[in-house]
């Protein structure tokens, strides 16, 4: 089977977690990890694992553009705007893990197959990946008038790009709650908690639906199906309890523990987005193999 050739752009928390996941994929062949600091932990780990590394950014990599069919961009929203143009000019497809939102917003359990030929797809944010499957599930049962998510992550799991992009995180997640999740109005809150030992990624989803007679058992059943669907690619994804329902308001509590590929298990926020990105690339690889 011919594997899709991929490269990772960005050697921070997300890029390095992605590397570990791609190494396990039967469908993807990682060729290169691209960074800007030869001494970064991410590039060092990539060299140790036997991958080619480039420390002159995307410009350096594009001297040999045939090294990738697909580039995962794990830099920052600002940087991705430029990267997107460069990659497209070279005919390389982009899976964007920044909140730049250049390409269609994508959540595997909701719209994995909607844009099979997109040159660039966007993975929204960790908070979006953790909550939109739930919002979409509820929107299958009721009209969702409003959905608000509160993503709480451990301070240690938020690297410098994440911290510099909080406004973009909020804007992109809120838009995806509407466009992908199916809520009429989306809102996002993000919180960093520095507690030691670090807290697990925690997401609360508050929804207002169009009716007050919520069938709690049917709702819970639907949420359990969603939990299972996400667990296919993120095993540590779980509902913390039954949903709380008060008239037309529903609150759902989710926890995401990671596979501890790079940072320890508390950093489920890395896994929820990197695993989703890998799943997209694998679908592309399978599609290519059947052509």
């Amino acid at each position: 089977m011919s594997k899709l050739k991929v490269a990772i752009l960005g050697s921070g928390n997300i890029g390095t977690d992605l590397m570990k996941k791609i190494m396990r994929s039967p469908h993807l062949e990682l060729t290169t990890v691209i960074g800007i600091d030869p001494d970064s932990d991410g590039l060092r780990k990539a060299r140790e694992a036997g991958f080619k590394t480039v420390h002159t950014g995307l410009d350096g990599f594009l001297e040999n553009p045939e090294e990738a069919d697909v580039v995962f961009d794990a830099t920052s929203a600002y940087a991705h705007i430029k990267h997107a143009e460069q990659l497209e000019a070279h005919g390389i497809r982009a899976i964007d893990l920044t909140p730049a939102a250049v390409g269609p917003l994508t959540v595997p359990t909701v719209n994995l197959h909607e844009n099979p030929d997109a040159k660039n797809v966007n993975m929204i944010t960790c908070g979006g990946q953790a909550t939109i499957p739930i919002i979409h599930a509820v929107s299958q049962l009721y009209e969702v008038e409003y959905a608000e998510i509160v993503a709480t992550i451990a301070s240690k799991s938020a690297g410098p790009a994440t911290r510099a992009n909080i406004d973009e995180f909020i804007a992109t997640t809120s838009r995806a709650i509407e466009v992908v999740g199916g809520a009429k109005k989306g809102r996002t809150v993000m919180i960093l908690n520095p507690a030691e030992p670090p807290i697990m990624m925690n997401d609360t989803i508050h929804l207002i639906v169009d009716q007050t007679l919520v069938d709690e058992d049917a709702l819970y059943e639907k949420l359990l199906q969603t939990e299972q669907a996400v667990q296919q690619y993120v095993p540590g994804y779980r509902l913390k309890s039954r949903p709380f329902v008060e008239e037309n308001r529903i609150s759902v509590f989710v926890e995401v523990s990671g596979a501890a590929d790079y940072l320890p298990a508390y950093a489920g926020n890395l896994d929820i987005i990197t695993a989703a990105a890998v799943k997209i690339a694998e679908e592309w690889s399978k599609a290519k193999a059947t052509v």
Binding site: V150, T152, V189, I191, L192, N193, A195, F253
Partner: peptide, 17 residues
């Protein structure tokens, strides 16, 4: 005890339950 920071009001419902 759980070292909540500002903004984590959602934790109140969970803890109460």
């Amino acid at each position: 005890k759980r070292k909540a920071v500002g903004g984590q009001e959602d934790m109140i419902l969970e803890v109460a339950a």
